[in-house]
Design a binder for these strands. Structure first.
Lengths: 201, 201
DNA sequence: GTCTATACGCCGATAGAC
DNA sequence: GTCTATCGGCGTATAGAC
């Protein structure tokens, strides 16, 4: 099975598939799915145009494989709702951390959500879980009187808005460069807990 | 100058330019700029393909004209900073109201921001003002000790995140249908003020 | 497995009849 | 002003040499 050889040259040919996935992720994030061509991807990856079809069977499959790691990584963590407030905090913190780790991935996800693109159908199981998880946590908070003010539907939107959008914001003022993911997570958790009027423990 | 005639037929030919702009706005919002073709726009508008070039000189100019009303409508309101907290509330409320009025426009704007598309250069004067206005208001709040907790940069992002993203969220759970723009504005203002730990007046 | 060359459709834009 | 017909270019995908 070990077909790798020492290709010292410029260490390029390590793994073509990965190279393509990396380049595609970068370009999809920057220019969107429709704004990215397979030519660009292959150029960026320094591979030939034909290899996308050969290895993946088309542009769309490249897109889906980009999200493969996402399926596994952080969604299978458990929230037992015995302490919904702590669950909420943990959820937010995990989300922010993962968001910082995978900025490009979330940027793509956000674009696709905004477009309600046909592709999100295939990603439903990926992120719908997170969405639902949050809703369940907030419902539990409501039932136990931890939160009261906004309707749960709105609360979900506010929290997700803070988590997804607020931290993805080097728009014109690329100012949140100087925050570590830890600091950002703290600030976000704080803003959210206060926003929902949860007197922090 | 009055070249209009009674075109009873199906009331269609009222104004071709407007018809195109409306269709383009709808489609750009739904499928993105790159995901929308001039053919689709003209189909949707029930006009011939050639009319986009004739009336606007190209697809990109259609895009820019869509934002023309935005330039005028709500950015020229004044915030004198004599009471920054009230300014913040007013800013948020206006933003939400306008956002509800012009969902499609803001959807497009969000997409373009996310893509950092070359087109946002042309829109800078449109929305950068709002961005800066908010930053100025929040700076004033900070200086007077009204807010303290998050750095201003982050506060700007949180507030804008709440205003732009949270209320644009009929993702998979189209649940915020039952809120009027007034209710949504109240909820958002509340979440924001609490989030920034401003004890509401 | 990887390359070059090419097929073929759709894109935006325009020429020219009406 | 509005239409139909068409151009040149670029998009994805593939055939075939190596």
């Amino acid at each position: 099975m070990d077909q790798k050889q020492i290709t010292s040259d410029k260490e390029k040919n390590k793994d073509v598939k990965n190279q393509i996935l990396q380049s595609a992720k970068k370009l999809f994030s920057k220019n969107g799915y429709n704004g990215t061509t397979v030519r660009q991807i292959c150029d960026e990856a320094n591979v030939s145009l034909a290899l996308i079809s050969y290895h993946f069977g088309g542009k769309e499959n490249v897109f889906f494989e980009i999200f493969a790691p996402f399926r596994l990584s952080f969604m299978n963590s458990e929230f037992d709702l015995s302490d919904p407030e702590q669950d909420l905090i943990r959820f937010c913190r995990m989300f922010v951390m993962y968001r910082y780790e995978e900025k490009e991935l979330f940027n793509i996800l956000q674009q696709e959500l905004l477009l309600k693109s046909p592709r999100i159908e295939m990603l439903k199981d990926v992120f719908l879980q997170a969405w639902e998880q949050l809703r369940i946590i907030l419902l539990a908070c409501k039932e136990r009187g931890i939160i009261d003010n906004p309707p749960v539907d709105m609360a979900v939107n506010f929290v997700m808005g803070t988590l997804m959008f607020s931290l993805n914001n080097p728009f014109l003022n690329p100012s949140n460069v100087n925050h570590t993911s830890e600091e950002a997570a703290d600030l976000a958790v704080n803003y959210i807990l206060n926003g929902l009027q949860i007197s922090s423990t």
